[in-house]
Amino acid sequence: MKWTYNNRANAIYFIIAAFLLLLPFVHDSRSLFILLTQVFIFSIFAMSYDLLLGFTGIVSFGHAMYFGIGAYAIGVFMKRYEPTNLNFVLAILTTILLTAIISFFVGLLTLRLKSHFYAMLTLSLSGLFLVLAEKWRTLTYGNDGFTFRVPEILKDRTDFYFICLICMIAVFLILSRFTNSPVGRVLQAIRENEQRTESLGYQVLHYKIIASIISGIFAGIAGILYAVSLRFVNTSVFALDITLDALLMTIIGGVGTLVGAIIGAGLIEFAHHWLTALAKEHWIFERWIIFFGIIYILAVMFFPLGIVGTLKSINWKRRKKPDVKKEEKLAG
């Protein structure tokens, strides 16, 4: 039963991936590709966030700092040095190194700080990076940011579309492997019951740090792609909005499911696009964030499991219903 279910899910993923890969050959809408590229980038970001929130149960409000580090790393490299492939690789390595180091220390802090205290701390930490990006003018050009040129291979929008899509698929595969590895299973145990995980003999802190680092690195990569897609970077990449977007995407899509993060990212990005387009019709659509607020409240109230979670639970209930009845009979 479970196998057929998994196979069906895999088949659907495969079809969607193939469809997205073939799309550029049959369709030719520049704005759609740019939009889809954004979706892929934010999918990576949301999946990395979901690893913390959905799998390990760590609530972080500072995820934008990794995103921003990636964005600024690529920007600074491309601006200061020639936009060559080598420098591009160096920027990626720098991002990985920086995000790994910072997320290691941020992960360490989970030892002392629990839930909302940790959330507040990460919030202020990312605020610190925001201030740093504003004040370090020689490197970041302050609030206004700067434009930069990108290497030849990233110039074509269609190519970049493929690169982002492949990155997203790769991150999805890596993270689904990771969450199903022995370590990944322990992460889910920590989410469920930290104390019990400890008394089973697992060093909870180590696992939290592992989750924090992996999540930080992927968020940094999402930041790189984001900056490349705009060829521009400013302090907004460190803003709280970025973290809130990830939070929104994972919660609406379904916490604790990687597909949910992707669906959430798609939904939010498309909704964002359409709502701002509607601004020509009526002024209220300029304040599209109001609608997101409403959607968010409704989602938390009526679909706390998110889209994917709700779908799964419906399926599950239908199959297990006879079982539940039996249980009740036994209890009675």
């Binding site: 492997r177 199903n180 590895s181 370590v183 990944g184 322990v186 060093q203 180590h206």
Partner: peptide, 10 residues
């Protein structure tokens, strides 16, 4: 088996 990350648990 505490830190195996890249093999499937199955």
């Amino acid at each position: 088996l505490r830190y195996t990350m890249f093999s499937h648990f199955k």
